[in-house]
Amino acid sequence: MTLDPMPGDLYHMQDLLDPAEQDVLGRVRAFMADEVAPIADDCWARAEFPFELVPKLGALGVAGLAYDECPGEPPSSMLTGFLALEMSRVDPSISTFFGVHAGLAMGSIAACGSPEQRRRWLPPMGRLEEVGAFALTEPTGGSDVALGLRTTARRDGDAWVLNGEKRWIGNGTFADVVVVWARDEADDTVRGFLVEKGTPGFAASRIENKIALRTVQNADLVFEDCRVPEANRLPGAEGFGDTAAILRRTRSGVAWQAVGVMLAAYGIARDYAKEREQFGRPIAKFQLVQDLLVKMLGNATASLGMVVRLAQLQDAGRYRDEHSALAKAYCTTRMREAVGWGRELMAGNGIVLDYGIGRFVADAEALYSYEGTREINTLIVGRAETGCGAFV
C-alpha cells in the first residue's frame, strides 16, 4: 500500500516506515477514517464507548504485535508510535483505550507475568476478545503513588486479599482483566495482580461529568476483601521499579498521541482558514492567521522529530527514563499551545463540536496530565541531568 501524505507531515516522517509497516499504518488509517471518524463526536458528546467497534479493531491485528505469544512480526517502536499518532489524529479517546489495553495491561502481563499467564491472556487480548485495564492511580495518590500506594495485599493461604481504591482507571468499567498494583502488608513490596471481572469484593463505577476523553470509560475501583488466587499474582512484579519500567515504555506513546492531536488541530484550522471568509476574502489571506498556522505546524513538526528520534533510541536499546519523560513533557506542552492557537483562529466556532477542533482542545487537557504531569516529568529529566533529586 502506498500511503497518501499525512496532513502536516512537512518533513515526510511517515516515509521512515518500511513498506510493510506502511501497510499496517494504512489499514489503521482506513479504519479510523471509515469507522471512527463518523461517530467520534457523537460518542464524545454522549460519553458512550462504541463497543461495536472493538471486534473490528481486533481484526486489524495490531493489538498483539509487540508480544511473542501473538501472531505477526514484532513492530518497530517507530510503527508503534505512528499507530498511536494515527489513532489520536482522529480520536484521542480510541487511542487512549488502545494504549491502556495494548500498552499498559498487555505490557504488564508480558513483562511481569508467568509463561502460563502470558499464554492465557495475551493471545485473546491481542485479538481484543478480552480487554485489559491498568490500575495504579488512587484517589489520594497520583504523582506520589510510588510512596503513597495505599491499596494493600495480604497473603492468605493460596490467595491474596486486596483492600483499597483506585481512580481514573481507563477501561475499568468493562475490562475482563485489571492489572492491580498493591502494597504487600508483609514486606511493603509493590506487587501486581490480575483481577478478573466478576471477582467477589471487586466493584467498578464510571466517573461522570468529565470534560475530556469523554468516550473513555474511566472508573473508580473498590476492593473489599477481594480474594485473588496466587496464580493471578504477577511473579515478575517485585517492586515499584517493575511498575515504572512499564510506564517508561508507555509514556513515549503519550508523546506520540500529542503529535497526533496537534496534526489534527492543524489540519482542521488550516482547512477552516481557507474556507472561512471575513472582510471579503478567506481568512487564510491574513498574515496573523498564517502566523497562527505556522506556529501550530512548528510545534507539531518539532515534536514529531523528537518522538521519531525517541523511537530510534528505543530500538537501539539506548532508551532511558529521561528520554520518555522529556518527550512527554515537551510534546504535551506544545500540544496545549497548538490546540489553543487553532481554537483562537476559529474564534467562537472553535468551541462547538460541529467544527471539529473543540473535542481536541478538551481532550488535550487529559493527555497533558496523564502518564506523569509536566512537573514530575521535568523532575525526572532534571535529576538525570544534574544528578540531584528534587522531588520532595
Score class of each variant (00 low, 15 high):
H12T: 08
D184E: 11
S114A: 09
M1P: 13
G358Y: 13
E196N: 06
F279K: 14
L292P: 00
T386Q: 02
L83C: 06
T2H: 12
W168K: 09
L293D: 09
V392Q: 09
A105D: 04
L3S: 00
V190N: 07
L16I: 00
A302L: 12
L292N: 14
Q290L: 04
T173I: 08
L353C: 01
G61F: 08
E371I: 00
G72L: 08
A300K: 05
Y67S: 05
R374Y: 12
M125V: 08
F174I: 05
G141P: 12
A347E: 14
G148A: 15
G126M: 08
K56G: 03
T140M: 07
D187H: 08
I207A: 09
V54I: 15
G170R: 05
Y330L: 05
A311N: 06
Q257D: 02
R150M: 06
N377P: 05
P75F: 02
G61H: 11
E208S: 04
A390L: 07
D91I: 07
T378H: 04
D158I: 02
R251I: 00
V177L: 02
V228Y: 07
L345E: 02
T96K: 15
M335Q: 12
T80H: 07
L162W: 12
Q290F: 01
A300S: 11
L213V: 10
C226L: 03
L79K: 12
A186F: 05
T96I: 03
L379T: 00
A264G: 01
A20C: 04
L194C: 10
N232I: 00
I376T: 11
M346T: 04
A384T: 05
G72W: 13
S93F: 14
T137C: 06
Q257C: 02
G192T: 06
V222M: 02
Y11I: 08
V216N: 11
T189M: 06
L213H: 14
D176W: 09
R320Y: 10
P38W: 09
V381P: 01
M13H: 13
D321W: 01
V36M: 14
A110D: 15
D187Y: 06
E48P: 01
G58M: 03
D9R: 11
L25W: 14
A300T: 06
F202R: 11
D188N: 13
G192W: 03
V180Y: 12
P74M: 06
T333A: 10
D156A: 13
R29C: 00
G172Q: 14
E86W: 05
R120N: 00
L25D: 10
Q312T: 04
A258I: 01
E385T: 05
L326W: 15
G317T: 07
M125L: 10
F202M: 14
M262V: 04
G107Y: 08
A37R: 15
K56M: 01
G305N: 15
W341I: 00
G342M: 01
